[in-house]
Design a protein around this nucleic acid. Sequence first.
DNA 1: CGCAACATGTAAGCGGTTACATGATTAC
DNA 2: GTAATCATGTAACCGCTTACATGTTGCG
Lengths: 180, 180
Amino acid sequence: MDVKTVCLGMLTDGEASGYDLKKHFESTFGHFFAAGYGSIYPALSSLAEQGLVSCEHIPQEGKPDRKVYQITTAGHTYLLKALEDPAPSHKVRSEFLATMCFAHLMSSEQVELVLDSRIEDTERYLTMFSKIECDGMQDWPPGMRFVLGFGRAVTEAVKAYVENNRHLLAEEHKAQTAIR
Amino acid sequence: MDVKTVCLGMLTDGEASGYDLKKHFESTFGHFFAAGYGSIYPALSSLAEQGLVSCEHIPQEGKPDRKVYQITTAGHTYLLKALEDPAPSHKVRSEFLATMCFAHLMSSEQVELVLDSRIEDTERYLTMFSKIECDGMQDWPPGMRFVLGFGRAVTEAVKAYVENNRHLLAEEHKAQTAIR
DNA sequence: CGCAACATGTAAGCGGTTACATGATTAC
DNA sequence: GTAATCATGTAACCGCTTACATGTTGCG
């Protein structure tokens, strides 16, 4: 499952431009599937070439033509095939955790800074989740609600863990064990 | 922070071969930083070329020479620089969540299968964490214990969330909201 | 006056994955 | 006998990131 497939999936919710899709990648999909314009625009071109989406050019003054994409029947078929994987991956790549593995090589000030930045990050996500929930989640498919709830639950777990266990990383207290 | 830097960090714990490091990437680092031989061996070669590690060739019969790497003073300096990033990233890339966004396009059997496979995955991780804790975590640096605890906490949160909210994805119950 | 939002794209490069290549030893 | 473990590597490929390129409209 790559950016192309996710774009295709987003288009099942209605027509959209690359610019529109980018906003989805930043908000609702942001916590588990990042993508920039450099991935999205080529993905849409490629989908159009394969006939999986159709494209309507809407001329605009001053701005480039707005290109609105719609999923085709072939696109739907393709998407359903892509969703058949019975064990889709769920990968974490964390420079944060890699850094924390070597906390004993760093100054405690540095470690504190890193932990603070991680907590800020989780707070940004939590704010975003609340905002999304406010402006109407009830018209969304159940899967989307499940996914948002997942993001919230995991983010809260991360925040709580970091807050409750950051004392482990102070050199003074080497013998303690993690709070569950 | 790339595979190279993580390898360098692992070598602060004592000399090791590429093969040894791979095992670390599978066990202790597995839940947040994956790497295969195709990344590790070139990384070590490159580190040696830059003088960040030294390499001892140990001849063996039948097998290729065992190459044991040790971090150098230059390597230590380099690592400390790399650890200075005050806001290291923590990224999730989840085909699982992407799939679940479109659960309404799938059969409930397919959805169930995907959810089961995710739970199995979390269980494998939890077993691994327990095993690691058993064979002596107390001699590890506090950072490593923090990271393992993080992995366990988040994995448990994932498992609980999936178990408690999978009913949201059954088409029958569209109006429900997520259990916190 | 400057910044954010609107709007699309290209191209180089990087980092990692996957498949391939080889082969002895040990445990079941 | 066959699978796992030990042990190292290369090369092609793929997908994504980053930087670059361009220009208008509207808000404060």
